[in-house]
Design a protein around this nucleic acid. Structure first.
Length: 305
DNA sequence: AAGAGTTTCAACCGCGTATGC
DNA sequence: CGCATACGCGGTTGAAACTCT
């Protein structure tokens, strides 16, 4: 009885990946594209479980991944999304370009949770804090969870329509106009050259391997933005997320622009309001907020329920 | 300088879901 | 429809790095 192991445990190597293994994996994916992970160990000769290969690729080697050095905006975005979505890290990651779910999860567990706890303690003692008060509202999660899922799916569709309705051919071969640095493709099967930017990651990685910088040089990590790979994302490995990389980029950029303009947290407050709104009959469009931004306008006008 | 304690994060594990037969 | 397999996700672990004493 019991679940069979995902792969043959005998002879399967575990633990940290070596640069050699990384190179083998990256070059294989450059040629064949991500996917069909089951066959990767056999075809590459790597003594690794298929799962391990996929994880290594999606969390570390994939082009366009930014590591460490979370910005203040990203931090707030994550907190906000966590309050909305719970521990759905993959969903949250879909809104934060260039970050992996694992990275966000780790950051949450090691930094943000503590930060929130501390802030809440401070609040309990004295004045209100802008950091957490907006994010942790009591709400019967179960109550809106099912609805949330439906809403998310519909929002995704609407968002997609809104973003791409004028660009029928965009999806697989051109960059979204609002995205300067993110993934540009969501096609599963790709020519080898598409993955060229993997080499940026791997070379950077190998540099780090030979001269490991102190861990807390996180801003340097943020500067790595390699990221502008501009193409070649391993999009076949993009999980079944709420929004595509293009969409998340747009959202994120809008978020960032609003943040830098010192405006309130409009886009997510809007989203949050929408999601939490008990009186669904009263849409935000009717409340007059949606019209203030074309994105949300289209989003809400696209909703047909 | 060194040992203890703490933090970080890459990687693993197990479960749920999707897909193909 | 049921089963087998592959994939994706979230929780957890543990080694390495870092900080404190």
């Amino acid at each position: 009885m019991g679940r069979p192991p995902c792969c043959d445990k005998i002879g399967v190597k575990k633990g940290p990946w070596t640069p050699e293994e990384d190179i083998i994996l990256v070059s294989y994916i450059q040629q064949n594209g991500p996917g069909n992970w089951k066959s990767v160990p056999n075809n590459t000769g790597l003594s690794r479980c298929s799962k391990s290969c996929r994880l290594r690729w999606t969390n570390y080697l994939r082009p366009g991944i930014k590591r460490g050095g979370f910005t203040d905006h990203e931090e707030k975005l994550i907190i906000h999304l966590q309050a909305l979505l719970g521990n759905r890290w993959a969903a949250i990651a879909s809104y934060v370009p260039q970050r992996t779910d694992n990275d966000i999860k780790n950051y949450w567990n090691t930094h943000l949770k503590k930060k929130l706890r501390k802030t809440e303690e401070d609040e309990a003692e004295g004045g209100p804090s802008s950091f957490s008060s907006n994010y942790h509202r009591p709400n019967s999660k179960g109550q809106w969870e099912r609805r949330l899922q439906t809403d998310i799916n519909m929002a995704k569709q609407a968002l997609h329509d809104a973003l791409y309705m004028d660009r029928p051919s965009f999806i697989y071969d051109s960059k979204p106009s609002c995205s300067s640095s993110s993934h540009s493709s969501i096609t599963p099967a790709r020519p080898a050259s598409t993955y060229a930017s993997s080499t940026e990651n791997i070379s950077r990685l190998l540099q780090n391997w030979t001269r490991k910088p102190p861990k807390n040089n996180s801003p340097a990590g943020a500067d790595h933005s390699t990221t502008t790979s501009g193409d070649g994302t391993a999009t076949a490995s993009v999980p079944n997320n709420i929004v595509s990389p293009e969409e998340s980029s747009c959202l994120f950029q809008y978020w960032e622009s609003k943040q830098s303009a010192a405006e309130p947290l409009f886009p997510l407050s809007l989203l949050e309001t929408w999601l939490f709104d008990e009186n669904r009959g009263v849409g935000l469009a009717e409340a007059g907020v949606a019209s203030s931004h074309p994105f949300t306008t289209t989003l809400f006008h696209s909703r047909s329920y």
